[in-house]
Design a protein around this nucleic acid. Structure first.
Length: 473
RNA sequence: GGCGCUAUCGUCUAGCCUGAUCUAGGACGUUGCCCUCUCAAGGCAAAAACACGGGUUUAAAUCCCGUUAGCGCUACCA
């Protein structure tokens, strides 16, 4: 049974890079009949915040990435918040201590800083020199009386290590050149990330660890820890990082790529997933627009690119537009209404909005373009471009349209084709010069759905009123 | 600085492992044309890339070495 996890720390909002990792985990699990687990890495008391945790869960759910085990869902290996698992880490740290694989280190944080500083000056690799390993009993006593609180460090004994990474292939490390003995328990008694991850992944029976490339250099530490504790080593897959449009690394500060912003902008969640999947991966058949089920079926972790990629808003917009067009009118309305309601943008009569929504389907890429489109329903609206109404030709068109209306007034329903056919012989212009003033007069905009479709929803009375309004401009 | 990772059109990528089928394919974007009595949507077409330098080979985008550039890690953050 394949078991994967997504393990965010609640120190900010989820962004494109985070959810890509989550998505790839999810897709990998689902394609293989496995389980997707959510674990919260909140051992950093300073930076972890409850509101971030809530927003992260909310965003994940919105994306459609429902976890099989985790907060609120539970499962056989909980709890799923690291802050509630402290006892488990403690016993394992004790075990390492008892077996001499780790030791209390009385070197202060300040000393470590100095060491690093000095190393930098001397142009040496700035890593810990393991001095705490060899303190005499006297030195330790002396430091204890000074009030020094010890950390626990893991002894690195076998620094040579290589692994086969699911996405990167064979990778090898020599820890001697990278780091010294590393901290597994802080002076305040809290476990560090390395300790917690290793213990949790083992206890939660994680088989595949799919995470960002930023963890690649941590992996040897984790493997060493697993060996020392007698845990199996899971399969690793390190995903390349996603960068911003300019090639700069994505950071939590860039709110423009946070899931919340995408949600606000009116993207379809699975369109977003579809786009994200395209970052570093290409569907074998070349069809890039994939429905949720197809995505699960086609996605292949082994085919994910090793190099990092840049986020491209234009392509996301295109993907979303394509998905919008794939929707039935009914579904389009449902999604659109939900969006408008949640974002508090539904300021007009619900039935009216509902009735007109489908005509915009071919015309928008995201739902946040809807409010502007819906202005057609207003009794008054600004003209986006008044110029075409003020030219002699423009006035002629409006005038002619009004004349046709009075002639047709006797008829029960306004017929679009008859309306246009009526106007044509009365004016010299045609094509663009004919339709632009009409569109402007009726909708106030340069573009939008076909006039043919706008016409019936407006009705005779409104059309007439608008033309008269345009005449005055 | 050390260690690790990466390198194909502006962007996302196919091809690389298993050299010849690559005058390098697709998609977004861009430009042009068509469709429609308008914009958009749709259709068609064009411009656009193997980072650089050395090898190996009859033959290299593909294998090897080096250079350059970017990124990551180098925390008592995760």
């Amino acid at each position: 049974m394949i078991r994967v996890r997504f393990a965010p720390s609640p120190t900010g909002y989820l962004h494109l890079g985070n959810v890509r990792t989550a998505l790839f985990n999810y897709l990998f699990a689902k394609a293989n009949g496995g389980k997707f687990i959510l674990r919260v890495e909140d051992t950093d008391k300073e930076r972890s915040r409850k509101e971030y945790l809530e927003s992260q869960k909310e965003d994940l759910l919105w994306m459609g990435l429902r976890w099989d085990e985790g907060p609120e869902v539970d499962g056989p290996y909980g709890p799923y918040l690291q802050s509630e698992r402290l006892e488990i880490y403690r016993t394992h740290i004790q075990k390492l201590l008892d077996e001499g694989k780790a030791y209390y280190c009385y070197v202060t944080e300040q000393e470590v800083e100095e060491m690093k500083h000095l190393a930098k000056l001397e142009r040496r690799p700035p890593h810990f020199d393991n001095r705490g390993r060899n303190f005499t009993q006297k030195e330790i006593e002396e430091r204890k009386t000074r009030g020094v609180k010890p950390t626990v460090r893991f002894k690195i004994e076998h620094p040579e290590l290589s692994l086969h990474d699911l996405v990167r292939g064979d990778v090898s490390f020599n820890l001697d050149e990278m780091v010294g003995d590393f901290v597994i328990q802080r002076a305040d008694g809290m476990p560090t990330f390395h300790m917690a991850v290793v213990v949790d992944d083992a206890f939660m029976k994680i088989t595949h660890i799919i995470r960002g490339e930023d963890h690649l250099s941590n992996t040897p530490k984790h493997i060493l820890l697993q060996r020392a504790l007698g845990f199996p080593t899971p399969q690793y897959g390190h995903l390349s990082l996603v960068h911003g449009p300019g090639g700069e690394p994505l950071s939590k500060r860039l709110s423009s790529v946070s899931v919340r912003e995408f949600r606000k902008a009116g993207y379809l969640p699975y369109a977003l997933c579809n786009y994200i999947s395209l970052l570093g991966w290409a569907p074998p058949e070349g069809h890039e627009i994939l429905k949720w089920d197809e995505l699960i079926h086609e996605f292949d972790l082994m085919k994910v690119s090793k190099s990092s990629s840049n986020f491209d808003q234009d392509k996301l917009n295109w993907v979303n537009g394509e998905h919008l067009r794939l929707l039935s009118d009914q579904d389009f309305c449902r999604y659109a209404m939900t969006y408008l309601k949640i974002q508090g943008l539904l300021t007009k009569d619900e039935d009216k909005v509902h009735g007109i929504l489908p005509i915009f389907k071919d015309n928008i890429q995201r739902f946040d373009q809807l409010p502007s489109r819906l202005e057609v329903l207003n009794d008054e609206f600004p003209y986006e471009e008044i110029h075409c109404l003020q030219t002699p030709e423009g006035r002629e068109v409006v005038q002619a349209a009004l004349e046709v209306l009075t002639v047709q007034a006797a008829q029960p329903a306004l017929d679009y084709q008859a309306f246009i056919d009526g106007i044509k012989p009365k004016v010299k212009v045609k094509g663009k010069d004919l339709f632009h003033p009409l569109r402007m007069a009726l909708t106030g905009k340069l573009n939008g759905p076909e006039l043919k479709r706008i016409f019936p929803v407006l009705g005779m009375e409104k059309v007439k009123k608008r033309l008269e309004q345009a005449q005055k401009s």
